[in-house]
Design a protein around this nucleic acid. Structure first.
Lengths: 182, 182
DNA sequence: ACATGATGTGTACACTCGTACACATGACGA
DNA sequence: TCGTCATGTGTACGAGTGTACACATCATGT
């Protein structure tokens, strides 16, 4: 009957985007084929046609998410040319990027939870963390890179879960302490 | 027929424990009334009898979990009497507590994910974080407490998601840098 | 001994889910 | 123009879900 649009090359992409959107709203638990299909304005049958199963779709979605975030991260670190700018870039990543995209916080937690339990999703987080570290490594030594990476993670998470907002100056202070070599 | 054990005052507790156990294995997504009932060796009807709904059960379970972890945290910090011991205690929390109880990692992520999306679960994480900070505050100033708390979080998470193990000495190094005032 | 009411349980209902698969569609070569 | 077949879709099925609620059970007071 209504099998209108025949070739829709962006359909796969739209499904992935819809998937992320649904996960941001409802969580992985609430991300069903039917809801995603509705969100993407695509028939239910398309789901299994484009993706062998829910897992394949989740992998595709979180890979796209991780790439997006890592791109932003890299862009900020690449733009810095002096040590001072690099320090500022790290602070900005914590204060601006995360705050500007609150839905990313939720998505981060979802992928972490998935990765914590299921190794097949850990390749996604591995690649993501590796990219972040390479970007940091352009400006800092190996140890500092490792520690900054962890610090960014912790501050980000706590900013998300804390009711009262964390003092912006304190974030800068934390980065400064990390940069102090002994 | 077999309505044996009439009064079983520990039943509610057993359900909560079973709930945590199932979540650790299968995640919140896989924690159904039926599976938990099976794990707790309790009839399905008991679920709705003791808990008004899934949410109430989840709240009870994660409250217990948060209390358990916070107890351990407090115990370690209280045992320290000198600054040096306090520093050591922080390192141990990261290196020993988390490593010894790997299932706690998964549970942490699950509650974070829940709290990130739904405010009614954030009271649990709030109370948890508050307790941790009070315990740290016995030994460190307010700013340092905030930063250490975030650092512990970040290092813990990255240790969980990273393939290669983080160098133990590096953890100590991170804590030291945090403790250096300007 | 027995009635009674609190305590706890089995089951049924309405619903959502992932997935398979028979079939419709229309682009394209002849 | 028309036949063919890759591309895409509607639907149905079995499994699993939360929850409500009629009922069984037995501790207790008389």
């Amino acid at each position: 009957m209504n099998a209108a649009r025949r070739t829709d090359p962006q359909r796969r992409d739209r499904i992935i985007d819809a998937c992320l959107s649904v996960i941001a709203e409802q969580g992985v638990a609430g991300a069903s084929h039917r809801r995603i299909a509705l969100e993407a304005d695509v028939p239910l049958g398309s789901m299994t046609y484009h993706f062998a199963g829910m897992d394949e779709l989740l992998q595709a979605a979180f890979n796209r998410f991780a790439d997006t975030v890592a791109d932003r991260f890299e862009a900020r670190m690449s733009a810095a040319t002096t040590p001072h700018e690099a320090r500022r870039a790290v602070v900005d990543i914590i204060l601006k990027d995360v705050f500007t995209h609150p839905e990313d916080l939720v998505l981060s937690h979802e992928i972490y939870t998935l990765a914590a339990r299921r190794p097949e999703f850990r390749t996604i987080t591995d690649r993501w963390m590796t990219r972040s570290r390479i970007a940091l490594r352009r400006h800092f030594d190996a140890d500092t890179t490792m520690l900054l990476d962890a610090l960014i993670e912790g501050l980000t998470i706590h900013r998300a879960l804390t009711v009262g907002p964390v003092d912006d100056a304190l974030v800068a202070e934390a980065v400064d302490r990390m940069l102090r070599r002994d």
